[in-house]
Each structure stands twice: as structure tokens, then as C-alpha cells.
Amino acid sequence: MKDDNVLLALIAVFVPFSLVSIGGAPSVFAGFQHQAVDVHHWVTAREFVDMFAISRAAPGPGSLLATLIGWQVAGWSGAIVATLAFYVPSSLLCYGVAYVWRRHRGKRWHTALEQGLAPVGIGLVLAGIIALFRVSGGGVLSWLVAFGSAGLMTWRPKLHPLLIFAVGGAIFVGLHAMNWDHLV
């Protein structure tokens, strides 16, 4: 009945977004907002902003906004349907590409593709780092912590990353507590 209709609507909204989300989920967040707030009235504008913050604070792809919208609309079944609708289509496409990719391993064009694409991938990763700093509102201290953690992990590869993350969090909380936020 109505529940089924809602689940179908979630699929109808998220499957197309999955296939056009080039550059990752942030590229379709504006579309999410339009569909969930303006078109379907699943969430209010305020709830949408909160969900965005939550999806960034949680571990994982940082794009679990779809999950939260589904959860809000139809509970557990909504969360599962929305998550799969958003992630499975793009994953199938990626699987297909990876499959073809592997079958041609060792051929000269494959090696050229791999060696040619690698620096492009790294360039995109670096650009992504810049974007991450921009949204996290990070100043000089963010950079210091980032380079400090990279240095530490290179110098002591056995050190568990979570320990280093905890130190990074503690530094920021400490400065926050002392009202030195302007340094951050």
C-alpha cells in the first residue's frame, strides 16, 4: 500500500542520482535536496541541513545522506532501500569496468592506461584534499595536524591511525576549550 509507494519513490529518486553522481555524492547533494525537500516533502529544509552534518560526522563514505532520508521516510526498510538504490547502480557499473580492465592486464595499451591514469588519479586526490579543507573550515592548524599525522604515519608505520586521529581531535578540543578557536 502507501508504504510500498514510498519505497518505490525512493528507488525512483536515488537510482538516477547514483548514475550521474560523477565525482562522488557531493555532486548530487543539490539534487537530493530538491527532490527530498521541494518535490516529495520527505524532510524540511532544516532537517536536510542537519542530515548533511550527521552524514559528515559518521564514519564511512560521507554520502550516507540517502540512508538518512530513507530512514526518515520509512524507517529501516526505507534506509535499506535508499542506501542500495543510491550505491548499487554505480557499483555495478564500476564492477563492469573493473572486470573488463582486469581481463586485458599485461597488454601494452593496458599498461599505458594504468600508467597514464595513475597521475590523473593522484591529481584528483590532491584536489579532493583541498576541497576537504575548504568544507571543514580548517585553517593553518588543520594543515599542521594533517601534515603532522602524515609525517607520524610515515615515520612510525606500525602506529595505529586511530591513535593519531584521537590526538588530532584532542588538539582541536584543547584549543577550543581555551577559546583559541581563532587559531583554528
Binding site: R56, A57, A118, P119, G121, I122, V125, L126, G128, I129, L132, F133, S136, G137, G138, L141, S142, W143, V145, A146, F147, G148, S149, A150, G151, L152, M153, T154, P161, I164, F165, A166, V167, G168, G169, A170, I171, F172, V173, L175, H176, A177, D181, V184
Partner: peptide, 25 residues
């Protein structure tokens, strides 16, 4: 109020991990 600051700090440290990949690349 400190939750957000903690998240920012963790995020910065996590970026360090990507920096290693980028540095190697």
C-alpha cells in the same frame, strides 16, 4: 560544543592519511 571541534581535528588527522597516498603518487 566541543563535538564539532573534535570532528574537525579528527578530519584533519585523517586527511594526513590521504596525504601519504598523494605523496607516494
Amino acid at each position: 560544543s566541543f563535538a564539532e571541534a573534535a570532528m574537525d581535528g579528527i578530519a584533519a588527522a585523517a586527511i594526513g592519511m590521504i596525504l601519504i597516498v598523494a605523496g607516494r603518487g
